[in-house]
Design a protein around this nucleic acid. Sequence first.
DNA 1: GCAAGGCAAAATTTATAAATTTTTTTTGGA
DNA 2: TCCAAAAAAAATTTATAAATTTTGCCTTGC
Lengths: 252, 252
Amino acid sequence: MYRKSGEMEWGNMTTELQAKSSESPATLATSVYERLKTDILETRLEPGRKLQLRFLTEHYDAGQTPLREALNRLTTEDLVIGKEQRGFFVKPVSLEELRELTKTRRWVEGLALKESMANATPEWEEALLVAHHRLERTPRSLDPEKFENNPEWERLHRIFHALLIGNCGSRPLIGFCEQLADRLQRYRALSSRKAFRVRNVAQEHADILKAVLQRDVGEAVRLLEHHYSQTADFILEDLKNAAALHGKAAAL
Amino acid sequence: MYRKSGEMEWGNMTTELQAKSSESPATLATSVYERLKTDILETRLEPGRKLQLRFLTEHYDAGQTPLREALNRLTTEDLVIGKEQRGFFVKPVSLEELRELTKTRRWVEGLALKESMANATPEWEEALLVAHHRLERTPRSLDPEKFENNPEWERLHRIFHALLIGNCGSRPLIGFCEQLADRLQRYRALSSRKAFRVRNVAQEHADILKAVLQRDVGEAVRLLEHHYSQTADFILEDLKNAAALHGKAAAL
DNA sequence: GCAAGGCAAAATTTATAAATTTTTTTTGGA
DNA sequence: TCCAAAAAAAATTTATAAATTTTGCCTTGC
């Protein structure tokens, strides 16, 4: 992995994630990599779109070399598809991939949560409690009337989930879970019914926390897996509708 | 992921792996990537070594851009460490990482094997049988007297293990397992007692196959996990000895 | 006299610009 | 309408330039 100059060691999750966003990267390639990645994850660069260097150099204000490096990194993460001699494309989405990613996430995060709980320490449990508290008191939508995505909620949501599995004792596994989270984030962004109003996500989080603090491994894992299934089901429903409305059935 | 022009779809594993090696890649960057990767995995480029562009351009006969792209891909796979503004290094090894990778591989491949068996089909079981047969009749060492690594055995060994988990129905999970296998291969290459003469690896493979064909999930998973533990224990022992002999204790 | 700090030169990494190769599109003819 | 050749566009690679880090030497202070 790339290491920026002053990056800190494995420690306080909150601090680490906060630092990442504020810290200005040392090289253009890394800066472009991060901007490209968020643009892809938030589907400002829509799935399947061709990423022409000409367009990218203008839009990201960088030369070909740093862009090429960024694209090559994203290629290994399967967010960008590089076809030899014919350029780069944003990885297309598909119902099939959504199902596969969700299934995998359930398996792997279930495993990771089980191990996290096996290694439970007071510090970890307290960090989880705090993360949940912060998430709980942050509004899901910026506008109480109609849904408007709140980036702060998204950030805290991710931290909470990362913390759940972050005590499992395997950095490779944590990295894999992060990658799955990235790849799934695109589908959430795509879903128009982003608020999930009919569903009480907050309650699900609270239930998971409760089971973890009660050291009930079976229940915690069951709830977490159910949480991901629910999310995927709502998105699946949404995407199918969207596809039907816009006649994009073939694309999915 | 990168896709070469005529790459085939998910299908016959043996054919796929064979094709990969024979097919000439379309771009220099990909060619360099593959050569660099094997040189790192077989520790011809030793852990911790600085990868200077000057050296690399001469040794791999390519310009800076394709090399830089290759290094950036390897960086995402955690086989190369890129320090901003100060170059690239082969990822160092450590007993700690070996333990972490092994632990993770046991968890994840155990999971994947369970799912593979849940999806068992006659075709899959027959492919497994054939892969094991081929592995069994290939000598571990090219020289019957003293150990000399047989690349064909290595290839067939990898195919057998890949096939075990290859029916799990999750391409992301399979990819993650491949990455773990890559990162562990370096440790096996480093171990001087490569032959594992005191241990009957062939018998372990046969036992795993038997349990799989008998549809005994618990036993198969147990044997596979044990197999990886054994391997790691031998390598750990070896590396500790090597470290003690050469006074490299600090490096590990 | 020796160590610490700082300045300047050298080496190295990073980025831009230009050249080359490959693919795609267009055009003209059968 | 289909095929082939030429032109255009785009991707890949090399070459050149800029920025950063490292190294060595010199000065300064103890």
